[in-house]
Nucleic acid binder design. Structure first.
Lengths: 363, 363
DNA sequence: CTGAAAGCGCTAACAG
DNA sequence: CTGTTAGCGCTTTCAG
């Protein structure tokens, strides 16, 4: 592969001149520039990025850490960040870390080692304290889906509490009083916020939550099936289930279908996230929409500005969620026939069958 | 950030020795090695990858080119490749190219510029000739989902023709005779193969295909809705539709639902790909499974061996597809009532409604 | 087993 | 406007 030396010789100039036409072409006389460019073409010259990075100690690269690549949740975000970075002629390196704090930290190290100009990290299971430390030690890091007051300008997230409140209120406003919930994993901070806000909102409405109606999942589809099975097994009646992720809602839906319980006639189902497939399943999922694209765009802008690019400051870093009403939640008493749930036979009817059918193809 | 110079001074050795403990630790006396390692820890030394790459002209990096990041089709593959590359202590850089040949080529250039040790590329809309040229010019490239005889060992793909044949035969064996098809975009080579094989298989079975029953889509969901609408609008009767992608099948399904046509009772639907959501929709999709994970794994192995790693040679690079029978295809005559399609009223009944409802949330 | 020294390809003062 | 030159941090002979 040709180097600037070859090009310089060919064009009859010094390597400094070649470097100039590469970096500040207007500082070189047009005639020589043309000559150099022609020589470059002749050799189909490609600048060695490692040499450049070594000399400048910059890489024109933004690093991204996500815990899971197969998660449909991250994909649109990655895409959005990629576009934004691309538009500034920078490059994106994506690493996939898993959820544990040390895995995330390993990825951060890896990216810093590659001299990324800035990093965007999704902190997985890191505690708030760990995230704060991360932000303190790495001034070029922006964090997604977590809020650390001291570094507010480097945190971008959607308003998790507000979203939870909207969903809960909607269920209550639809007349539901016995609302079950399928949560995410306990180590997850967002999940903790959601659960707290859910309980809070219920309490405000004078609706105490029966502990039997709180089932834990891990945000993934299969855990939704299992949790729903557990919920039915308690025998405690409920008319609606609030799932803290669409994936778990789909799992729950699948379980209910196999158990002969119809949604939303027998049980209403509320999701969270508004993934692509929320509108593909039947019935289509009523859920909380999070503007993941916007999230990615804003995170990328902050990162690019940290990297020294001239980028307009983002208007806000706390995005509003949106309630998307589709078909999986029904106001209570709306169902066609006489079988408006009175809760008596419910416990008996919703016993889980002995063998729980699995949905194939799920993660 | 500390350099080997700092470490060397601290440990009282030369930089060459430090370099050795980094690369061939067994060639240095244990005592000095220990001293050096301690110095490294003291500075929390991180080797500068750019300097290394510049000196060695290797990057320990595998590059990947996919046309679209948001496509659920590529995600598991990326993940799989990432794991394989990781296991060999190499790194993966993913670029997203779009489908046009020149976009793919731009990405290849980008990655070669980063001195990737090997590349895995999904050639999008490139012609077979272009792919052949790509393979000829870049001996470190492996290609996914395309076959070039001269470079067979660098092509990994699932048997597209066989998959198509299996799907078509299954529909025929179920008694369907009037089978419509929703194809992918015409520039796509795989699509061309599928269409040819479909027609071939039909002809072999003595079932001529009415041109009105061939509708073109682009593999994405919305095109499935549109194509299905077009199909119904022809007035030509058919009992089954073979969609060349699951996404289009889901789109078709959604359209049929809104048009009051039930699947599979009125029309059977066959997909292709077996995406995650094939088993999430209702009815669950009967489709052709492609082992994308395996595809990714094998591609990664070939790439790694091209990159000079010791990797077991993959057993085969042409993977077998698998027919997954679920619920969206029904043997003809199986439906409950008397309304076994006789084709008379069909044309009238399946007229598309004036306003075509859209599925939200799709790309 | 260890050190000296010459690069790898490019950038960035500094002179001219 | 252009050329000279000294690095950037690491690898890799070649001596010792």
């Amino acid at each position: 592969m040709a180097t600037i030396k070859d090009v310089a010789r060919q064009a009859g100039v010094s390597i400094a001149t070649v470097s100039r036409v590469l970096n500040e072409p207007n500082k070189v006389r047009e005639r020589t520039r043309l000559r150099v460019e022609q020589a470059m073409r002749a050799f189909s010259f490609q600048r060695n990025v490692f040499a450049t990075a070594l000399a400048t100690n910059r890489s024109e690269t933004i690093g991204l850490v996500v815990p899971r690549l197969t998660d449909v949740f991250f994909v649109p975000m990655i895409n959005q960040i990629g576009n934004a970075v691309d538009a500034r002629h920078s490059y994106l390196i994506v690493t996939c870390s898993d959820y544990a704090a040390q895995d995330v930290e390993r990825c951060v190290r890896f990216l810093q080692q590659r001299r990324c100009d800035a990093l965007i990290v999704f902190p997985g299971a890191m505690t708030d304290t760990q995230v704060a430390a991360l932000l303190a030690e790495n001034p070029n890091v922006v964090v997604i889906h977590r809020f650390v007051p001291q570094y507010a300008s480097r945190c971008v997230l959607v308003d998790n509490r507000l979203g939870t409140r909207m969903a809960t209120r909607y269920l209550i406003d639809c007349g539901h009083r016995d609302i079950a919930v399928i949560t995410g994993p306990s180590y997850n901070q967002e999940n903790a916020e959601r659960l707290a806000t859910f309980l809070e909102t219920m309490t405000e409405a004078g609706l105490p939550v029966d502990p039997r109606l709180v089932a834990q999942g891990d945000f993934l589809l299969e855990s939704g099936e299992q949790a729903m099975s557990a919920l039915l097994a308690t025998g405690r009646r409920f008319s609606a289930v609030f799932c803290f992720s669409d994936r778990m809602a789909v799992g729950a839906l699948s379980y209910l279908r196999s158990a002969g319980v119809s949604v939303p006639e027998d049980i209403s189902l509320m999701g969270f996230d508004d993934m692509d497939y929320a509108s593909l399943v039947f019935p289509r999922l009523t859920t909380i929409h999070q503007d993941i694209d916007e999230l990615g765009r804003i995170a990328a802008e902050i990162a690019l500005s940290l990297a020294g690019h001239e980028v307009p400051a983002p208007a806000k870093t706390l995005l509003p969620p949106r309630l998307v009403v589709r078909e999986s939640v029904l106001p209570i008493g709306t169902r066609g026939g006489a079988r408006v749930s009175d809760g008596r036979e419910a416990g008996a009817r919703w016993i889980a069958p002995a063998s729980m059918p699995r949905v194939e193809g799920s993660e």
